[in-house]
């Protein structure tokens, strides 16, 4: 069941100059159950230049807390990244359709930049289900590798940076892990060129693969039909309700 709820910022953990982790607690309400890969729509407080809510993927959630890992991409996300402790944020959640949990075999979670956000919760959930999970995190430089300690606590984690400042030197898609024989399923979230490259590798190797899209969105609940993605079977579908996670076989990516 989707809800509109107020949350209070318990802690704003800055990650360098470009990212912030908001640790939020519900005000006078209880958290609805959320699935990895789902997202929320956050109202931007005291914003003069923005109008719509901001769709943000769920980094982690339990009964008491909701974590949102946010990159500064414009006025709206700037205001959210600057939300001080005690700020009340109005949030619509949980939204969308998350990653598959009934996966088998060896699972590789591939994240790029702030796109690693939903993979933390997904990894934790898969590990508790007894699934073998490896993480491959990509970033421009070492300071853009987010939550590395938390990923390492959850499972085997490899890193690739474009400047070679941490881990493998190069794009995630050139990491040897992606060429390893025993991968049965890939879950991927990151910049579009990265997801398309990962999808191409998965397709070539016959590996089942899911990606999480971030199409430009207004309502988040399937009403405005703005965030559509063209799909093989159903044509234009709403990313906010049919996604944001799609199996690459559903997408018309070339």
């Amino acid at each position: 069941m989707k809800k509109v709820m107020d949350f209070v910022v318990k802690e704003n953990v800055r990650h360098g100059s470009q990212y912030a982790l908001l640790r939020l607690s519900p005000v006078r309400s209880t958290m609805p159950p959320v699935a990895p890969g789902q997202f929320v729509q956050v109202e931007v407080p005291h914003s003069r230049t923005t109008f719509l809510r901001r769709p943000i993927s769920i980094n982690y959630a339990d009964q008491r807390e909701l974590w949102l890992l946010i990159r500064r991409a414009g006025a709206g996300t700037n205001a959210l990244c600057d939300a001080e402790e005690g700020t009340v944020l109005n949030i619509v959640l949980p939204l969308g359709h998350g990653f598959s949990l009934d996966v088998k075999g060896h699972v590789l979670l591939v994240g790029g930049g702030v796109g690693i956000a939903p993979l933390l919760m997904l990894g934790k959930r898969l590990v508790t289900r007894g699934i073998d999970v490896k993480f491959l995190l990509g970033a421009r430089t070492s300071t853009d590798v987010l939550q590395l300690d938390l990923f390492r606590q959850t499972g085997d984690t490899r890193v690739a940076t474009e400047d070679g400042s941490l881990g493998h030197h190069g794009l995630v898609t050139t990491h040897p892990l992606l060429q390893q024989a025993d991968i049965d399923h890939i879950a991927c979230c990151g910049p579009m060129p990265m997801m398309k490259a990962v999808a191409a590798i998965a397709r070539e190797r016959g590996i089942n693969c899911e990606v999480s899209l971030e199409n430009r969105m207004a309502c988040g609940v399937g009403a405005c039909l703005c965030c559509v993605e063209d799909t093989v079977e159903h044509g234009n579908v709403c990313t906010c309700t049919e996604g944001p996670v799609f199996n690459i076989n559903q997408l018309k990516w070339t």
């Binding site: 109008f51 719509l52 430009r216 207004a218 405005c224 039909l225 703005c226 559509v228 234009n236």
Partner: peptide
């Protein structure tokens, strides 16, 4: 409908081209 992208946020509003 029209191809994506179909929406642009504007000051105090939005443009759509669904």
């Amino acid at each position: 409908g029209n191809p994506y992208p179909r929406m642009a946020e504007t000051p105090s509003g939005m443009l759509n081209a669904v």
